[in-house]
Design a protein around this nucleic acid. Structure first.
Lengths: 240, 240
DNA sequence: AAGTGGTCTAGACCACGGC
DNA sequence: CCGTGGTCTAGACCACTTC
């Protein structure tokens, strides 16, 4: 038998996909037993090692759970911790619709420090977008993002009125976002921020500076977020 | 050949340990080539699959990097993101010595909300420890931690004067810490905190509430941290 | 005792990288 | 071209869980 089928997909991945579909379609629910190595080997007419490879790999990515002497079972759905999500996605994951108001959109060539963070020449044209995020009618955050105006020209045209920036980048520009490094601290609201968020000046704010990287390791987006205390808490999980 | 050596260690792990030691001792540096599957198989008189298992597993944990057609190489040292570390460990990782001052140590039985977070009966005896963390002579954080006084009796005796709480838990009590869920927001300094941190009242503080779990999934420690803005920024990495 | 996952053998062919 | 990792075979024995 040829180890790799016509389309170039390894056999063990083909087996994984069959199992994955059964789980994603709801045919197999968390806790249900998955076919054993030996069953899979017979079903797909492959050797034990190949069936094993498929299951071990699925276990590694958390889709199934293996119990020695007992079997392989569908794992409970994972809560996604520390996931990089856009505001729109965060709201959607809580069953809400994100609302935001654009405060300003402009191109600037004097943001030397931010250009440096994005590994761009000091006086690059940067597209800057300021938005107030709202929960209901209450503003709870001011987010300012910066990205290369040369690399993403159409953005300046104003396609962002209601679209997600992440979606635009990933779909219109084919940028694959991979991870973000974030610096988090507390600060006091200055006059402008206080007004935009309808707070007294000096109110404590959670400040998050986000540098977002593509899969190729290129920094492509810088976001400064100021979050109203009380209305927003960041939740993360750390491992030992 | 018996697949498992006398002490019960699988062969592939034994091979991994040999490689790991070579890397950790500095004998192999990042970028250096590691013995190939075929070389390892001959050296250790095992089959190719076993040698392969050893390398694939090491690659998975980030110790080495495999390049198809080229070889296996020592991976550059990883920066540890989102790692659960004690104050002492955090300082040590930056080459500093952590200093802290114990403000109070007592047993309380009225912390119903915190007892609930620790999955303990509402009026459990909780050992509470307040410490001011210092960088040089400047205080920058107030940390208050709570844990079951019944489960960790000797702590109340005051062994913490200069020891790390993590070390005590892990060594004296055999508790294996696994992960922490953290809620992060901003708040304003109240009178007591302001005094302890030598700040004006109302100064913005980064607030981190940490619930730390053991490997068995039991919440065993609750920590409330208040961090002076400017002196401390939290750094995390999120993945998409 | 039967069935499961965990480890292991002694080979094979393929795809890729560098010389 | 040769050596590398990636996939795969057709078995084997062991350790563990369940009955």
């Amino acid at each position: 038998m040829t180890p790799i089928s016509r389309n170039g997909e390894p056999t063990y991945k083909r087996i994984q996909n069959v199992i994955r579909k059964r789980i994603e379609s709801g045919l197999l629910k968390p806790g249900d037993a998955v076919a054993s190595e030996r069953e899979l080997a017979k079903m797909h007419k492959v050797s034990l090692m190949t069936a094993r490879h498929a299951l071990a790999d699925l276990a590694r990515e958390g889709m199934v759970e293996r119990r020695h002497g007992s079997g392989t079972f569908v794992a409970p759905p994972k809560i996604h911790f520390n996931k990089l999500m856009s505001y729109t996605e965060q709201m959607a994951s809580r069953g809400l619709v994100g609302r935001s108001k654009i405060i300003s959109a402009s191109v600037r060539d004097n943001e030397h420090e931010i250009a440096a963070r994005l590994s761009l020449p000091s006086s690059s044209h940067l597209f800057m977008l300021e938005r107030v995020r709202q929960a209901g009618d209450e503003p709870f955050a001011l987010e300012t993002c910066y990205l290369s105006a040369d690399e993403f020209p159409a953005l300046a045209g104003g396609t962002l009125e209601r679209g997600s920036l992440f979606v635009t980048l990933e779909h219109e520009y084919g940028v694959e976002l991979a991870y973000a490094d974030e610096e988090i601290d507390a600060t006091a609201a200055d006059l402008k921020t206080a007004e935009l968020l309808a707070l007294p000046r000096g109110s404590p704010l959670l400040r998050i500076r986000q540098l977002i990287f593509t899969t190729k390791g290129r920094a492509c987006l810088y976001v400064l977020g100021l979050y109203r205390s009380g209305r927003h808490t960041l939740v993360i999980r750390r491992f030992r």
